[in-house]
Design a binder for these strands. Structure first.
Length: 491
RNA sequence: GCCCCCAUCGUCUAGUGGCCUAGGACGCAGCCCUCUCAAGGCUAAAACGAGGAUUCGAAUUCCUCUGGGGGCACCA
């Protein structure tokens, strides 16, 4: 029997404070999958209430990254929607209104404590090995008096009035129920002195106002998860389905990737930032495939997926709560798989920019001819430069020592070149079928191995010891150039 | 220090009390194919953190420990 699923409204809500990384991309991907699968909406919301941490250009980078992956949103800051605005910095009055509602309901209160006093208080608590928490000084000030002080312009924040005793149980979709003692939850600040709501309040309000049905976010929110549920309950709102995804660990599995380590990774051709992936030669299809499988699996052990496959097959039921170490060699594998899955025209289109960025001037027709012979040889798209750059260089400049085959003398190797040249000069067009047979005959006649003979020719024609198949390469290079390069190698 | 989460091959994972002699994938090793490099095919090595408890029976349930991760801001 078919399960009837309500359309999900899910949001990806990054703060524009840095680069979009793999963890964020996975969260966005799961959001997208849920929305598309249920015929719901995928919403992009920018959480930029903290002006101090705002990074110019970060919002654009987030949008570029999502679009590169193919995760187009339905509502967002750049395209609007019925529940806007989609930047928290444009929603201040909404938060103020709801904060007041919470205060009047008795679930929040004005606090006039000075930051320096709170700091001292915290230090004392830590010295006494107590968990740092607000001491409740302003908790019992009457609303009438608090209002008077606010009216008088006294600096203040708004705090949540957390119950002192009892427990709170919240439910995470993949982890199940989590129960905490209320006394371990602080009277968190909801609204800062400058009047701006903090994440804890703003996100809950936005999720409610925007009709969000599923909140998918990182496990760093687990400690404040009960607070968030309490806020929803204090308003009398229905809670969304909560899903707290585990963090990605560095490849060693020991801890999160640091800024320094992320930079070091680039030296090995890897990155945790989405902005780098294209330039490193990765296909968005491969990145999607790869990050999907870090924390999620499919019933029948299939591992190769496209985005449309995932829209159909993704399920919250198969999520894994354990933190996952990032495995870049598996990304390389998926990249190869997806490269091999590309149509030749598409592969050519995607390889071309890498050749251009390497200073070459590739023409479409040649790039298309190269596609089939490099397809299963590329781990990343930028490998095409190393593998097939010689097709676009006027000179190949082989290293003299490499023109001498292993096990042969320089004289024998030169003989190979001369005899081959003579043979090829007698062939009008260098197609594999016309070239291979006579050259194999030469191999037999000289009594050398095919590897020795073809190895010499490979170096002479391509300038490299590793290349696409020799005869196919010769055909694309063209008779005139092949002959000229052989002559050049004989000297 | 306190709170929360997590725990199967090196890594990503399957596994919801008997289908487990613990399955798959990446990587690694060997073999085959082969003009190099790949791709492809085959084979191998490789794991239930420890201790208790429940049960006829535990990777699977419970407890303790250990280990790992996250959080403890007028950041998100």
């Amino acid at each position: 029997m078919a399960e009837i699923v309500k359309p999900a409204r899910v949001r990806f809500a990054p703060s524009p404070t840095g680069h979009l990384h793999l963890g964020g991309a996975r969260t966005a991907l799961y959001d997208y999958l849920l929305a598309r699968q249920t015929g719901g909406q995928f919403i992009l919301r920018i959480e930029d209430t903290d002006r101090k941490r705002y990074v110019e250009g970060a919002e654009q980078e987030i949008m570029d990254g999502l679009r590169w992956l193919g995760l187009e949103w339905d509502e967002g800051p750049d395209k609007g929607g019925p529940y806007g605005p989609y930047r928290q910095s444009e929603r201040k009055e909404i938060y103020t209104k709801y904060a007041r509602e919470l205060i009047e309901k008795g679930h929040a209160y004005y606090c006039f404590c000075q930051p320096d006093r709170l700091e001292k208080m915290r230090q004392g608590q830590q010295a006494r090995k107590e968990p740092p928490h607000y001491d409740g000084t302003c908790r019992d000030i009457s609303l009438a008096e608090a209002d008077k002080r606010v009216q008088a312009g006294e600096p203040h924040v708004v705090r949540f009035r957390t119950p002192k005793d009892g427990t709170t149980t919240v439910v995470d979709r993949m982890r199940g129920p989590i129960t905490v003692e209320n006394r371990t939850i602080d009277d968190y600040i909801l609204v800062k002195t400058d009047g701006w709501a903090l994440y804890h309040l703003a996100a809950m309000i936005d999720d409610h106002e925007m009709g969000i049905t599923h909140v998918v976010r990182g496990s760093e929110w687990l400690p404040t998860f009960p607070l968030h549920a309490m806020i929803c309950r204090a308003f009398g709102w229905e809670e969304p389905v909560w899903v707290h995804l585990s963090v990605f660990l560095k490849p060693s599995g020991k801890g999160k990737m640091s800024k320094r380590e992320a930079a070091d990774l680039m030296k090995d051709g890897y990155s945790i930032f989405l902005k780098d992936m294209r330039g490193l030669g990765y296909l968005p299809e491969a990145v999607v495939n790869w990050i999907t499988l870090m924390g999620w699996s499919y019933d029948d052990h299939t591992e190769l997926f496209t985005l449309p496959d995932l829209v159909e097959k993704f399920s919250l039921d198969h999520l894994n709560p354990a933190p996952a170490a990032i495995n870049f060699t598996k990304l390389d594998h998926f990249n190869g798989e997806h490269i091999r899955g590309l149509a030749l025209e598409e592969l050519a289109k995607r390889m071309k920019p890498f050749l251009e960025e390497a200073g070459l001037t590739p023409d479409d027709s040649t790039v298309l001819k190269i596609a089939p012979i490099v397809r299963e040889r590329l781990a990343t798209l930028d490998d095409v430069v190393e593998m097939a750059g010689f097709f676009f260089r006027p000179e190949v400049n082989p290293i003299p020592e490499e023109l001498v085959a292993k096990g042969l003398t320089a004289g024998q190797s030169a003989e190979v070149l001369k005899r081959s040249l003579a043979i090829l000069e007698g062939i009008p067009t260098l197609t594999p079928t016309l070239v291979e047979e006579p050259l194999r005959g030469l191999v037999e006649e000289l009594g050398f191995s095919a590897g020795q003979v073809f190895g010499i020719l490979r170096v002479a024609v391509t300038g490299q010891k590793v290349s696409p198949p020799l005869f196919e390469s010769m055909e694309i290079v063209g008779r005139d150039v092949v002959l000229a390069r052989l002559k050049g190698a004989i000297i």
